[in-house]
């Protein structure tokens, strides 16, 4: 055996293999950083374009043909209306569906069908929900919804976020250990008593986190709302659920699709507002998750 074999140096073949590994590792790191850099560039681009247009009047004025006088008042009110109604509709429905799937449904074809169906619905493009909303809520249910109204939009967006909300709530319910249920049954509680007093309170932080994340998806939705006709010139604030409306994302689209640079700046300013709302919702969700996180 040669002397080199006994030295501590790795054989050249292994050195080459390790070098190849290092190169690969840096390639993978760069791939990851592309995402990070894109996010930074995107935020910087929007801030540079829009921050100067974030004046107090931007929040208090209605949209206008004159860029300097245009604002997002109607869009902000519309967004709050839409989110509020959407939360009122989707939260009880989503949690109830999750409770049924996790606690009540017997293992069998019915549960499998509904579960598979929810997974499939989560993958349906949002614009298809817009088509559904247009045909069912805007046209068919017009005596109830008033046509192209906030409630039509909220119902459409609720159907869109329901699968996300149900899946998140199911995970939260599943994380509640079985021993808690058994203790409750052991004391003679019925199924609903067990669910209401033990399972749901313990799962609630997780459910709320999922709800906020689902709503943060809803707040940026644009295409389905264009379908149901939220893209009109709205220079008023909705008074009730059957009123016409516009939302931030639609206002952004409206401004971004115009060629004049002033409107591009307005779009950027509105994007800043939208992203701030979105990030605060995400921050709230993360805070909630960390605060109430419990190890069983």
């Amino acid at each position: 055996m040669s002397v080199e074999r006994h030295s501590l140096e790795a054989p050249p073949e292994l050195v080459a293999r390790r070098r190849r590994g290092k190169v690969f590792q840096y390639l993978c790191l760069s791939a990851t950083l592309v995402g990070v850099v894109t996010l930074v560039v995107l935020l910087a681009d929007v801030l540079i374009d829009g921050v100067a247009w974030l004046t107090p009047t931007f929040f208090t004025e209605f949209p206008s043909r004159i860029p300097a006088r245009a604002g997002i008042k109607s869009a902000l009110y519309g967004t709050v209306w839409l989110m509020g109604l959407c939360a009122l509709i989707s939260f009880p429905l989503g949690v109830a569906a999750a409770v049924w799937l996790e606690e009540y449904a017997k293992k069998g074809w019915l549960q499998t069908v509904i579960q598979t169906n929810i997974a499939n619905l989560a993958g349906v493009p949002s614009i298809v929900y817009g088509i559904l909303g247009l045909a069912v809520f805007v046209r068919w249910m017009v005596p109830f919804t008033g046509g192209r109204s906030v409630i039509s939009g909220a119902l459409t967006i609720s159907l869109l976020v329901l699968p996300i909300l149900i899946i998140a709530s199911q995970e939260a319910i599943r994380a509640v250990p079985g021993s808690i249920r058994e203790a409750s049954y052991g004391l003679g509680a019925t199924k609903w008593q067990t669910v209401r007093h033990h399972v749901l309170p313990n799962a609630m932080p997780g459910i709320l986190t999922g709800t906020i994340l689902a709503l943060s998806r809803a707040i940026g939705e644009t295409a389905p709302l264009i379908m149901i006709g939220a893209l009109t010139f709205i220079a008023f604030v909705p008074d009730g659920p059957r009123d016409q409306f516009t939302v931030l994302s639609i206002q952004i689209y409206n401004w971004a699709s115009r060629p004049q640079p002033e409107f591009q700046h307005l779009a950027a300013a509105a994007i800043i507002v939208l992203l701030m709302l979105l990030l605060s919702m995400n921050a709230l969700a993360i805070w909630l998750r960390n605060r109430h996180h419990r190890e069983w």
Binding site: L42, D45, V46, S216, R217, A256, L275, L278
Partner: peptide, 14 residues
């Protein structure tokens, strides 16, 4: 989580 319409703006203006 960045909304699609924001990516559209980014594509168009950047």
């Amino acid at each position: 989580g960045v909304p699609s319409v924001v990516y559209g703006y980014f594509a168009l203006t950047f």
